[in-house]
Design a protein around this nucleic acid. Sequence first.
DNA 1: TATGAATGAGACTTCATTCAT
DNA 2: AATGAATGAAGTCTCATTCAT
Lengths: 218, 218, 218, 218
Amino acid sequence: MPRVTAAVKARLSETRRTQILEAAVRVFARRGFDRATIQDIAGSAGLSEGSIYNYFRSKEELLVHIPQHLVRPALEPLLEAAAPETIADVERQLLQVAQGIVGRVKENAWFLKVFVSALPRLSPRARERYLSLLPLYAAERLEGVLRRGMRAGLFRQDLDAAIAARAFPGMLLIFLMMQEVLLEKKLVPHDYNTIAGETVRLFLYGAASRQHQPAHRP
Amino acid sequence: MPRVTAAVKARLSETRRTQILEAAVRVFARRGFDRATIQDIAGSAGLSEGSIYNYFRSKEELLVHIPQHLVRPALEPLLEAAAPETIADVERQLLQVAQGIVGRVKENAWFLKVFVSALPRLSPRARERYLSLLPLYAAERLEGVLRRGMRAGLFRQDLDAAIAARAFPGMLLIFLMMQEVLLEKKLVPHDYNTIAGETVRLFLYGAASRQHQPAHRP
Amino acid sequence: MPRVTAAVKARLSETRRTQILEAAVRVFARRGFDRATIQDIAGSAGLSEGSIYNYFRSKEELLVHIPQHLVRPALEPLLEAAAPETIADVERQLLQVAQGIVGRVKENAWFLKVFVSALPRLSPRARERYLSLLPLYAAERLEGVLRRGMRAGLFRQDLDAAIAARAFPGMLLIFLMMQEVLLEKKLVPHDYNTIAGETVRLFLYGAASRQHQPAHRP
Amino acid sequence: MPRVTAAVKARLSETRRTQILEAAVRVFARRGFDRATIQDIAGSAGLSEGSIYNYFRSKEELLVHIPQHLVRPALEPLLEAAAPETIADVERQLLQVAQGIVGRVKENAWFLKVFVSALPRLSPRARERYLSLLPLYAAERLEGVLRRGMRAGLFRQDLDAAIAARAFPGMLLIFLMMQEVLLEKKLVPHDYNTIAGETVRLFLYGAASRQHQPAHRP
DNA sequence: TATGAATGAGACTTCATTCAT
DNA sequence: AATGAATGAAGTCTCATTCAT
């Protein structure tokens, strides 16, 4: 039964990789990429130094592979919903996106610390690869949604979809990064459900009161 | 004239310290804290390695002393004092804030790079101190403006001023951090004037088209 | 039939050893002894690392066992048996020797590379054993031929046969080692037939022109 | 007197480099390039590991710089003599060359062991650089001498100067390498003066007896 | 017997820091 | 106060060898 053995081995190997990456995230988050040592990571993964190199070619490879294993899977369900027909649909979907972002960031706060601090020292290729896996790039999908929504008349005709799609996650990320990553302390006395709801409404309807809404530009 | 000599010496010493710290910021920004070497910094400061240690006890000391010398310019107010009377006033003021934020981040890009790269080495207290020195966005003031605007009927009555005041700069910071600090690569093909203008409009009037603006909640 | 099985096993085992040693020579020649890894060798032999150790105790053992398997072909005689009667006979025989040397070195280039790369690791005894296994030049035989030729008046009476017999192959080996083993790059734009012919003529008739040939010493 | 200090420092630095290179040669010769450790070399040079890197960028750099410091200076005086007018002049000069080669090889026997074993793993550029410093390349000068001698009628008109110039050192190197480097034991019971003399005569007048010297080809 | 993951000693190299000049 | 060579701890990575399967 060599086939069975091969399958078992492959599974074991995948387990090991995950186990190592999880250890790497823990150590990177605690010490930063440069201060983390392979020994730390190996110890945290319950392996010896040399074994790490049976699974990853270098320390940088560890960094590069973290998002693939930890962040991407969490991102997949985002924005898989049907095309919205009413603005209420949009609101519901955006709320989902917002809650998704909140969830991901909270879940991966340790990783984001690693990510942010390590980003400047990655090679451009690695950087690109890294970023393409992050929530910000949900922006591209959101941009598509906005464009379709504009054609359907749900959104302002003079909206710049590219800018708006990138501004939206930023509204949330500020809280999230500050509270979860940078300061680890609350900035406003609200829970994230409230914040997400407010943010979505702000994005959709703006801050201006009804009577001050201008006629939109063509 | 030992007193004169002493004074001269003190002044010279202070100059040297500044000179070294400025070099340190340049190098930290370019290479990240951990990758920066004392030799880099000494070279950039026009001194030799050993001399650095006549002014600072260690590399960490350099990091700790940076903000005191470099963050002052960012303390200027972002908002003009006058209370807004029309929504157009608000739009103008927000545009000013937005452009202020853009300016500040671009101006302090190197410092932000240092901050970001040193993130995992900073204690929570140090992180807070750093962040408080960098009033990247004048959230408290903006919150006040929004509250006054709400009382004046310019803004939705159901707006959460605290959340909105913090969400607004986030809309811009995404672009700024990515383009100026983390990626050094444009995310959208617009200049910051356009981005700032769009962001302000998005904040004020939202994304939804006119006919989909809901009645605001009480 | 335990006896048959045992015999089969022994044969198989011997095959495996040979297979491994041949792989080792290939890899040693390509990478040098120290740079060769067991993994390289195992891969080249179509086995896995661990299996090598079922046949050889260590990497050094591989080195030690190589010649027994690979140097035999070089033992064939280089000189035909017949005694030369004219200087033309001698020239023909030397040409044969020269071409033999060329052939041998080219044939054993990989082994020579191994030998050369392993040089500093070999004990003087091992070095001698290796060299004696590689009768790269049939110095003793050539010495005998020269002595007989001297008695027959074909060679200068003042020739030192021992020195000459060892100098002759050296004339060729320079080209051969450089071109085939060390540099893998041509030193002169001639093929080996030309080089061999020239070398033989140089050996027999020297470089001086006819009118400058001295009277030979007694 | 900063100028004096600078000069002193430069001299000291050059001394250190030589000191390190000499240690490197010792260690490389004893252990081979790959088995030699920086610690060995540093210890042998009376320095600590890190200090080596103040003078050489890498272990390979050490290897590459050895011939420049140790072999080239010994080679310079070779073949600096006046143009030969008689065959006796040539014989005297070649004897000098031969004795020079003997001297160099004996002197640098340890280095040649390093050289030969390290050669295959050098980059092509380093190899080229390396070889250009070795006695074999005296061949180019010898080739020039031979060509001039041919024009002057001292040498056979049908001589191939390129081949002859490279064959000549080979006649000696065989002895030398075997006796000094590979076997470290005598092959023939002669001293090097005798060997050198015999070799030169063999090269100039060949092995054939007077009455068997052919008419040279045009 | 074959496999290949695990091991860990040991290599090269970097760099903050010290110190004699 | 300035220099920069020296130091050596510490880090990443390689690889021969072992061993459970």
